[in-house]
């Protein structure tokens, strides 16, 4: 039982990371029916920018915790800019000529370019990201929990909650929801829907960058850290449904926990298998995702 709870804890923190990245997929899918296949690289770059900033601030004789906190705004700003670049350079050009698949290639290509940049600037070797909190685990009810794992869960939920509040409460957020509902009608309201889509890409990369700096302290940082995470988060987005905010959290937790359980009770080499089988099952039986609503159109 103790083992099981222990596995659960590590599964939850990884699952929340998947959830945040998948949330980013949802943001752009909602407004534009496209998504950034370079999301993993957005995560990588966010983590690496965070790595350099945190180390710089520590060099200015700041404590690791405050260095981490102060680095966050810069990481977020970087994510916003990086996401906007992806939309303006990749997606917009492809959708303008009404290319069905152009945005897929364009976002993959940009992802590769970003990865090459990361390799050249930060090197190919994994780097140790300074942990903002103690790495010694706390014991809660006999289960070891690393403080960073708590920060991951809180940070991930705070991010999603903030976006949800923005969408519900502010007129700009409502404009984003309106664009997701019906782009033509949103345009008739005076909403610049192209700008809304750029914004959703910016926010999507911001969430990936946040995921990057959340997970970096408990793994290693490097040019290759994002690829697998981005792909698994894509599976999460499909499992949970590309239209459901709750879905990505639950989907992320399902994948994170099954991975940990399989790794512990069966074989680490097979830890990706159950999640992917689940993905195949969802695609066959509930293609809109576990929490997705099948599209209903009133004519």
């Amino acid at each position: 039982m103790q083992n099981f709870l222990q596995i659960l804890v590590s599964g939850i923190s990884v699952g929340m990371i998947y959830g945040v990245i998948a949330f980013g997929y949802q943001l752009t899918f909602a407004t534009s029916k496209t998504l950034n296949f370079g999301q993993g690289e957005a995560l990588t770059l966010g983590a690496l920018v965070g790595f350099t900033t945190v180390n710089f601030l520590i060099g200015m004789s700041l404590g690791t915790f405050w260095a981490y906190i102060l680095a966050l705004p810069l990481v977020f700003a970087f994510g916003l800019v990086q996401g906007s670049i992806v939309e303006l350079l990749g997606v917009r050009q492809a959708t303008k000529i009404k290319s069905e698949a152009g945005w897929i290639m364009a976002t993959i290509a940009l992802g590769i370019i970003f990865k090459n940049i990361a390799e050249n600037v930060w090197g190919k070797d994994p780097l140790k990201f300074p942990s903002p909190v103690s790495e010694a685990p706390l014991t809660i009810g006999g289960v070891n929990v690393r403080p960073m794992e708590i920060i991951i869960v809180v940070g991930a939920l705070a991010m999603m909650l903030a976006v949800e509040l923005f969408n519900r409460r502010s007129i700009y957020g409502k404009a984003v929801v309106a664009t997701s509902n019906d782009r033509d009608a949103a345009g008739l309201m005076g909403i610049n829907t192209s700008r809304v889509i750029t914004f959703s890409y910016a926010l999507s990369s911001l969430s990936a960058a946040l995921a990057g700096v959340l997970i970096a302290p408990i793994t290693l940082t490097g040019a290759n850290m994002g690829a697998a995470l981005g792909l698994k988060a894509f599976a999460v987005a499909i499992i949970g449904g590309l239209s459901s905010g709750l879905g990505v959290v639950v989907g992320g937790l399902i994948l994170g926990i099954t991975e940990s359980l399989t790794g512990f009770y069966f074989d680490t080499g097979y830890k990706d298998v159950p999640g992917l089988i689940l993905l195949l099952l969802v695609l066959s039986f509930k293609p809109a995702g576990l929490f997705g609503k099948a599209a209903i159109k009133k004519v």
């Binding site: 007129i171 929801v177 309106a178 997701s180 509902n181 033509d184 949103a186 309201m189 909403i191």
Partner: peptide, 26 residues
């Protein structure tokens, strides 16, 4: 007011109306 109505189905009636005033609110 377009053909097929095109209301924002996942938003409340009040939010739909507020979006009609979007250029005024912004």
């Amino acid at each position: 007011s377009p053909e097929g109505r095109k209301v924002f189905s996942t938003l409340s009636v009040t939010d739909n109306l507020l979006l009609g005033a979007y250029p005024r609110l912004t």
